[in-house]
C-alpha cells in the first residue's frame, strides 16, 4: 500500500503534479510525519513540558519578593500578574523551539548531510518542516501546563486577542529562530566546534530576548539596544503582545520580525549555497 507521504515524496510525483502543490505537499508530509512521531510518545511530551512548572515556580518566588520589596503594584507598567503571564509565554516559546543547530552540525560533521542532500527536497526546508512539527506539539504542552500553574498563582490569563496575536507572532519567532539555528549548524562547514555559538546564542535569547526578565525592566539605554536586535523579536515581541494585545503593538512586532526575517533569511540562503559548493564527499 502506498501512503500519501510516499506519493508526495517520490520524485515522479514532483514531475507529474502541479509544481507548487507538490512542493508544499512534500514539506507538509515531513511536518505531519514529525507531528505524528511526537504524538507517539505523549508521556514523554508531557514530561518535557513539566520543566515550565519549575521555571514558573522560581519566577513566582523571585518576582513576588521583588514586587513586595518595592511596594509598588506595577513596575514599568507591568503588574505581578502581567509579569508572570509574560514570563509564561516567553518560557513556552523558549522551551518549545527546536534547536536544529546541533542536528545540522552533527550531520555536517559525520557526513550524513550527503545522504540528505541527494533527496528530492531542500535540506534547509526539510529541517524547518520537521522542526515545526516538533515545536507545535511541544508549544501546546508548555502552554497548557504553564497556563495552568500561572493561573493558579496569579489569576486568569489575558483575553482572547492576546492568544490570537501572540500565536501569529510565535509562528514568525520560530522562523527567525530557525534562521539562527541553521546558521550555527552550517558554521560546522567552517569551524570544528559549534557548541560555543549555540550556548552564546541561547544566552542572548535569555537576556536580550527577555526570557529571564521583561525588557521593560531594563535601563533605558539597554532597552534601546535590545529592541534594535533580533533576539527581542523572537521572545519579547510575542510575550509582550500576549499581555498587551494592541493593534499598534502587533504591527510593530510583525514589522520587526519581517525585517529581521528578510535579513537573516537572505544570510541563510547565501551561506547554505556557499557551504554546499565547498562540500566534498568521498565515497559512499
Amino acid at each position: 500500500m502506498r501512503s500519501r507521504e510516499a506519493d508526495v515524496l517520490s520524485p515522479e510525483s514532483r514531475v507529474r503534479g502541479p509544481a507548487a502543490a507538490a512542493v508544499v505537499g512534500k514539506y507538509w508530509a515531513i511536518f505531519r510525519t514529525q507531528l505524528v512521531n511526537s504524538l507517539a510518545y505523549p508521556i514523554d511530551l508531557l514530561g518535557r513540558s513539566l520543566a515550565i512548572v519549575l521555571f514558573m515556580w522560581i519566577f513566582m518566588n523571585l518576582w513576588r519578593v521583588t514586587y513586595g520589596a518595592t511596594g509598588a503594584s506595577s513596575i514599568a507598567g507591568l503588574t505581578l500578574a502581567d509579569t508572570m503571564w509574560y514570563l509564561m509565554m516567553a518560557e513556552a516559546v523558549m522551551l518549545s523551539k527546536r534547536d536544529l543547530s546541533e542536528t545540522i552540525s552533527e550531520q555536517v560533521k559525520d557526513g550524513s548531510v550527503a545522504y540528505l542532500l541527494n533527496k528530492p527536497f531542500n535540506f534547509i526546508l526539510y529541517h524547518f518542516a520537521a522542526g515545526l512539527g516538533h515545536s507545535l506539539l511541544s508549544f501546546g504542552g508548555n502552554l497548557l501546563i504553564g497556563s495552568g500553574i500561572v493561573w493558579l498563582m496569579v489569576g486568569p490569563p489575558p483575553g482572547i486577542m492576546g492568544w490570537l496575536f501572540a500565536g501569529v507572532a510565535v509562528a514568525l519567532s520560530w522562523l527567525l529562530d530557525f534562521c539562527f539555528s541553521t546558521l550555527i549548524g552550517l558554521s560546522a562547514f567552517v569551524v570544528e566546534e559549534t557548541n560555543a555559538f549555540r550556548w552564546i546564542y541561547q544566552k542572548f535569547l535569555l537576556l536580550l530576548g527577555g526570557v529571564l526578565i521583561p525588557l521593560d525592566f531594563f535601563p533605558a539605554w539597554l532597552q534601546t539596544i535590545s529592541l534594535n536586535l533580533p533576539f527581542a523579536w523572537i521572545i519579547y515581541g510575542p510575550a509582550r503582545l500576549f499581555v498587551d494585545p494592541s493593534l499598534a503593538r502587533l504591527g510593530q512586532v510583525l514589522l520587526q520580525q519581517g525585517i529581521w526575517l528578510a535579513v537573516f533569511g537572505g544570510i541563510v540562503w547565501v551561506t547554505y549555497r556557499r557551504a554546499v559548493a565547498r562540500l566534498v564527499i568521498n565515497g559512499g
Binding site: E193, N195, A196, W199, F217
Partner: peptide, 23 residues
C-alpha cells in the same frame, strides 16, 4: 582548538547569564 573553544565559550556563556543579575 575544540577544547579551548568550548572552555572560552562556556565562560562567555556563564558571564552572559550573570549579566541578568547585574541588571
Amino acid at each position: 582548538v575544540s577544547f579551548l573553544t568550548q572552555v572560552v565559550g562556556m565562560m562567555l556563556n556563564n558571564a552572559l547569564y550573570f549579566v541578568f543579575w547585574i541588571i
